[in-house]
């Protein structure tokens, strides 16, 4: 009887935890969607304008050709049209390259199979996450990165990307319009260390103790649900890694991640599948 009740309580707890994880994933997805929409907006605007410009240019050329005799004045006009079309043609290539890059970053970020283990180049993963999130950073925020040569890390790539995204979002919110986001990554032999530092408002020592607890937030209800860092710690635990934080009010905050190069032996794959309660 007691055993059955215990099993029910445990199942309920697992269910509630899975629900929290799903909520955090939805929040991550929201940021991603906004990032992609923003990143695509500029090249899309350029392409739409260029398509219209090219059509107008063709109409003008057609009008000149319709006369059958090209006057010297019209020749000057043709040169002007060619100059304009050349400018927009170059821009088309830039816009297409930008969109390709966004799709590549997105592909790397959102691996389709959550339970897929990959050997991942974490510097590339950090860069992709930064590309998708840069619109969240204030206009006066500069990004500095210092990446040593990193070995490939065996991990659940999407989950690790989710950690990077959470830390960068927190840094963006802490800094507002001005500041410096610094990302260091280097090898420690059998593991890698990644530090994400911001020059934001910092966290008081009393809040630091609660930081990784589910539901803890200083941002107010509209910004986050306070799940981000709890999920980060859970993901790091599951990779047999760790996440620590140091902070000084008015100076900034640094999160340090350590990830072993290989996943713990015998770790059941299902334990990493966040969609299953």
């Amino acid at each position: 009887m007691l055993r059955r009740e215990l099993a029910e309580v445990k199942a309920r707890e697992l269910g509630a935890r899975a629900e929290l994880v799903r909520s955090a994933q939805l929040a991550t997805l929201g940021h991603l969607v906004r990032g992609v929409a923003h990143e695509i907006n500029t090249p899309l605007g350029a392409l739409a304008s260029n398509q219209d410009t090219t059509r107008r240019a063709l109409d003008k050329l057609q009008q000149i050709l319709d006369d059958e005799v090209v006057t010297p004045d019209e020749l000057v006009e043709v040169r002007r049209i060619v100059h304009a079309v050349t400018a927009v043609q170059e821009t088309n290539l830039m816009a297409v390259d930008r969109m390709k890059h966004v799709v590549k970053s997105l592909r790397n970020f959102g691996r389709p199979d959550r339970s897929e283990i990959d050997r991942v180049d974490l510097t590339e993963a950090i860069r992709d996450t930064l590309d998708l999130l840069k619109h969240e950073l204030g206009s006066g925020v500069t990004v500095q990165s210092d990446f040593g040569a990193l070995p490939l890390v065996e991990c659940y790539a999407q989950q690790v990307n989710q950690v990077f995204m959470n830390l960068m979002m927190n840094a963006a919110h802490a800094m507002g319009e001005q500041g410096t986001l610094t990302i260091h990554a280097h090898s420690l032999g059998d593991s890698v260390e990644i530090r994400v530092s911001d020059t934001g408002h910092g966290i008081s020592s009393e809040h630091l103790e609660q930081l990784f607890e589910p539901g803890f937030t200083t941002k107010g209800k509209r910004v986050g649900m306070g799940l981000g860092l709890a999920i980060c710690r859970e993901i790091l635990d599951r990779h047999a890694g760790e996440i620590t934080v140091t902070s000084e009010v008015g100076v900034g905050t640094t999160f340090t991640l350590r990830l072993p190069l290989a996943l713990p032996v015998g770790e059941p794959v299902a334990a990493f599948d966040q969609t299953k309660p």
Partner: peptide, 16 residues
């Protein structure tokens, strides 16, 4: 700061 935006606008205004 986006070169593709200034070049697109420039091409259009040059033409029109």
């Amino acid at each position: 700061d986006e070169l593709m935006v200034v070049r697109s606008l420039e091409g259009f205004l040059t033409l029109e």
